[in-house]
Nucleic acid binder design. Structure first.
Lengths: 110, 110
DNA sequence: AAGCGTAGTACGACAGCCGAAGGAACGACA
DNA sequence: TGTCGTTCCTTCGGCTGTCGTACTACGCTT
């Protein structure tokens, strides 16, 4: 089973999360399932990675959190919504990705 | 000037170095120049990153060092040579790259 | 009664990258 | 002669993102 080295995804987890939030607000558990599904189980983000990304990105102003009070059972669930700054960051990351891909592929033999 | 975020190259510096060593032994300063040239100045590896990669990879058995005694002036220059384990690691990293590219690009809008 | 799925938090460790700084040799240039 | 730029490498300490471990807590099924 091909394990994905965390060191390459590092710094792109934020991008992945922001991409999914472009569709509308979501929360941790759901996002983790969407990442799994989206990649056909190839990438399974760790919970701690995910939640620490939330706090980091909220601090950076890329996302905003709110809680859904309607939830039954008193269960807490924190939703996150992408901000304009988050959208801009996402776009910048996409551009960066193309550069990085170009660079790395100069050193990859297929 | 588009700065390359180190967090994505992270973990692929080793791969880049190993690729260049496939051509034959080389040393730090030369490799750094080849990386610059190869990427049209897009990626300029930091010295500390480079030299710490050397020690790490030697510890892991991916490269071997030797010194050229013929050098004039008493200047020390440490050469590195890729090992079979290094070649295998490089090949594995190339495969991993294709997987990672596939994964990340599911979340990138071009 | 045990286990699974949902949903999240806290803590601490690690690894790789990087800034700052230094050193020592050499050639060029003025 | 002095100083600058290039070559070549090293040590040290800090930062950041990831991850392992562990825990809480509810509801449903087996």
């Amino acid at each position: 089973m091909a394990e994905i080295s965390s060191d390459i995804i590092r710094g792109y987890n934020d991008t992945i999360i922001l991409y999914l939030l472009l569709d509308g607000p979501s929360y941790g558990y759901e996002l983790s399932k969407r990442i799994r599904a989206n990649t056909s189980e190839k990438y399974i983000i760790k919970e701690t990675t995910l939640y620490s990304a939330f706090t980091r990105m909220e601090k950076n102003g890329f996302i905003e959190s709110f809680t859904d009070e309607v939830l039954s059972g008193g269960k807490k669930r924190t939703y996150y919504r992408i901000t304009d700054a988050g959208r801009a960051y996402y776009r910048a990351k996409c551009e960066e990705w193309n550069l990085i891909k170009e660079v790395i592929e100069k050193f990859i033999v297929t």
